[in-house]
């Protein structure tokens, strides 16, 4: 238990008050549906609301660092667990997390070989975006997380796969960096796509994030 929290019963009482207040406000809004045209009054499951928006989170994962990957997969699993569709789009440095350390690509160009060398090979090799200290920082955060029973990025990715989170790999980045599909992790819904797919998925969804 962390020490920063106030008395839980006081917090609960405060939250109950807030809920009652919000319910009262919602009741007023529902009583006058014409006041806000197009506002969806029902929010059930993944059904399309009146505005045409889908219960979907679209996420660009651009960063190739452990802390960003933890944030991305924490939000992705929470959203999927809350009944939302989740589509992650990995591009540029984000590919580090999708590399399978057991696989290596064939027939690489010089640039491809350079990226192979420089880009971390899988989640276990990801650095921290701050305080990495030559990899000591990443090791330290993993050990702290383990001590606090926080799920590792590998566990989060397994949960994401289980919850049906879709991973899209940006074809353009793969071409630029000389990464082949044969080098990527085994993930049940991994697809190769382009920016138009992201735009199509994101524009119809409710939440879009760039990490």
């Amino acid at each position: 238990m962390s020490s920063h929290s106030a008395d839980p019963s006081a917090q609960i009482a405060e939250l109950q008050k807030q809920v009652a207040d919000l319910q009262a406000r919602l009741a007023r809004v529902e009583a006058t549906p014409s006041a806000i045209p197009g506002l969806p009054l029902a929010t059930s499951g993944t059904a399309q609301a009146g505005s045409g928006q889908v219960e979907r989170v679209s996420m660009v994962v651009f960063s190739g660092t452990l802390d960003h990957a933890i944030a991305a997969f924490t939000i992705a699993t929470a959203a999927a667990a809350s009944g939302m569709e989740v589509e992650m789009f990995f591009t540029f440095w984000g590919f580090a997390a999708l590399r399978d350390p057991k696989k290596s690509g064939q027939g690489k160009t010089l640039i491809g070989k350079m990226f192979s060398w420089m880009l971390p090979r899988g989640t276990r090799k990801l650095p921290l975006s701050q305080w990495n200290m030559g990899g000591a920082g990443a090791k330290m955060i993993r050990s702290i997380m383990q001590g606090r029973k926080v799920a590792s990025v590998e566990e989060l990715m397994a949960a994401a796969a289980d919850l049906g989170v879709v991973i899209n790999a940006c074809e353009m980045s793969m071409g630029l960096m000389g990464i082949g599909q044969d080098e990527l992790i085994d993930y049940p819904t991994l697809k190769v796509c382009g920016a138009a797919t992201f735009i199509e998925r994101a524009s119809a969804g409710k939440v879009t994030l760039f990490i």
């Binding site: 809350s82 799920a151 949960a159």
Partner: peptide
């Protein structure tokens, strides 16, 4: 118990 965010919610959803 023994799970941290987001895992209690992931387990609950399952």
């Amino acid at each position: 118990r023994g799970k941290s965010c987001p895992m209690p919610i992931v387990a609950l959803a399952k």
